[in-house]
Amino acid sequence: MKLETERLILRKIEETDVERMFLLDSNPEVMKYIGVPVLTEQSESLAVIRMIQKQYKENGTGRLAVIEKETGLLIGWSGLKLLTEETNGYKNVLDLGYRYLPEFWGKGYAMEAAIASLELGFNEMNAKVIYAYAHAENDGSNYILKKLGFEKTSEFTEPDGVCNWYELRHEKYLP
């Protein structure tokens, strides 16, 4: 699976991405609202990559590496995954998520990659609804989800705080 936008390539995450993934996973700013500890060993990022690769095989989808065309660098990940464990009362639904290195924040990359992922979900995977959630204090993520057209439908509490739950119905999605 490979998606291409004006400035980005979204492709499956590979074990050779471990160094850049570790930069992401070990950054306290990136991990601030995630609810999991900052990773301290590259081997932990390799385990994350293998978990995502398992999702590709078992669920037919998973987060994708986001590559900046200009530099060829992995700048983060984005995409749809199947929530196989219950989250806010939902299970076996598509969830949009993303994470980027801070030096790539504010450049519109999250929107660009999310739009490509939503088009894949609605047009090729025939999803009727795509869900997303973000920590209530994560202004950047909440802003992006609202700008994409997601509607906040509820809140739920995670160990690290309150999260906003969003949904986007296919009929309301206007790229």
Rank of each mutant, 00 (worst) to 15 (best):
L3M: 08
R7T: 00
L8T: 02
L8H: 01
I9E: 02
I13P: 01
E19T: 13
M21Q: 11
M21A: 12
D25H: 14
S26T: 04
N27G: 04
V30A: 05
K32S: 00
Y33E: 07
I34K: 09
P37K: 14
E41Y: 14
E44C: 12
L46V: 09
A47I: 07
V48F: 15
R50T: 05
I52S: 03
I52A: 08
K54F: 06
K57Y: 12
T61H: 10
G62Q: 08
R63S: 06
R63G: 08
A65P: 07
A65W: 10
I67E: 09
L74Y: 06
I75A: 00
L82K: 15
L83W: 11
T84A: 06
G89Y: 06
V93N: 05
L94H: 13
L96D: 09
Y98V: 01
R99W: 01
Y100D: 00
G106V: 08
K107A: 03
I115M: 01
I115D: 01
S117H: 01
L118S: 02
E119H: 11
L120P: 00
N123I: 02
E124T: 12
E124A: 11
M125A: 03
M125L: 15
V129D: 05
Y131W: 10
Y131N: 06
Y133H: 10
A134R: 02
H135G: 06
E137Q: 14
D139V: 13
D139P: 01
D139T: 14
Y143K: 13
L145F: 09
L145H: 03
L145M: 04
E151S: 14
K152Y: 02
T153K: 14
T153L: 13
S154W: 10
E155Y: 10
T157L: 14
D160H: 15
G161F: 11
G161T: 10
C163Y: 15
C163T: 04
H170F: 11
Y173D: 11
L174Q: 13
L174P: 00
P175S: 07
